[in-house]
């Protein structure tokens, strides 16, 4: 039996499942304690290298999926997917979805009275390269009201979904924009304890910005990292023999 290297536990920046400011967590979060289990093959394996077979090829430009350009301000979002040791996570998929420039989702259950854009769906997908880098093009999403409490507005955000190398590294998050005053009063962003909430705020970057074309924002995603240095598989095999 080969030794299994697990992933590090949640760090202090992960929000609790019960965050009463976000009202929907009250009836939907477990009340009984989680049962701690050791990580085995089930938790440390995952469908790596299978993205295109499962989901299809990448869709890195959300502004060219329809007959014409969508309304709104075109932006570039770029960054890296890393583990906790700062090492790149290559060849992993990041799924993307968001509202349009007016803050309206294409979803039928979004009934807010802001215009839909026939030229914008808001769904994309990118695969990281050998250095863990990714980049996609989209339009800057708008803020929108929601029913959580009186006069509640979500800050502009882009949803990002990553599986990483294993079942244990699954992460869904939201990327916010710098200098958005709504972040301060948003119960979902503020489910993350300070100062870690700010990990979710992207940075404007003039190097990523393309002249006369689009503003650029940087956002790195950090997944749980291996719990120990992997054993040297080239030279340590004798130790594994019975």
């Amino acid at each position: 039996m080969s030794q299994i290297i697990g992933y590090r536990p949640e760090d202090a920046g992960q929000p609790p499942s019960l965050s009463p400011g976000y009202v929907s967590t009250v009836p939907r979060s477990p009340r009984l304690p989680l049962v701690k289990i050791p990580q085995g093959l089930t938790e440390t394996t995952g469908p790596a290298n299978a993205w295109s077979r499962l989901m299809g090829p990448s869709m890195a430009d959300l502004t060219t999926q329809h007959a014409a350009m969508p309304q709104g301000q075109r932006i570039i979002v770029a960054g890296r997917v890393l583990d906790e040791q700062g090492r790149p996570v290559p060849n992993t998929v990041m799924e993307i979805w968001q509202a349009n420039a007016a803050g309206r989702y294409i979803h039928k259950k979004d009934q807010w009275d802001a215009p839909l854009d026939p030229n914008f769906t808001g769904a994309g997908r990118v695969i990281t390269d050998a250095d863990g880098r990714y980049q996609f093009v989209t339009i800057r999403p708008g803020a929108y009201p929601w029913g959580n409490h009186h006069n509640a507005w979500r800050p502009a955000h882009i949803h990002l979904s990553l599986l990483g190398p294993a079942f244990a590294t699954r992460l869904v998050t939201q990327m916010y924009f710098p200098d958005d005053p709504l972040i301060e009063i948003d119960p979902i962003a503020n489910a993350v304890p300070p100062p870690y909430r700010q990990r979710l705020v992207s940075r404007f970057d003039i190097e990523t910005t393309r002249p006369n074309w689009a503003l650029g924002y940087l956002f790195d995603v950090v997944l749980r990292g291996p719990d120990a240095t992997p054993p040297d598989t080239e030279h340590g095999e004798d130790d594994d023999h019975d």
Binding site: A12, W97, R224
Partner: peptide, 14 residues
């Protein structure tokens, strides 16, 4: 450090 988790929200279906 680890990127904090956030909800998928109600509109993830597309």
């Amino acid at each position: 450090g680890q990127t904090p988790s956030q909800t998928v929200g109600p509109y993830f279906h597309y």
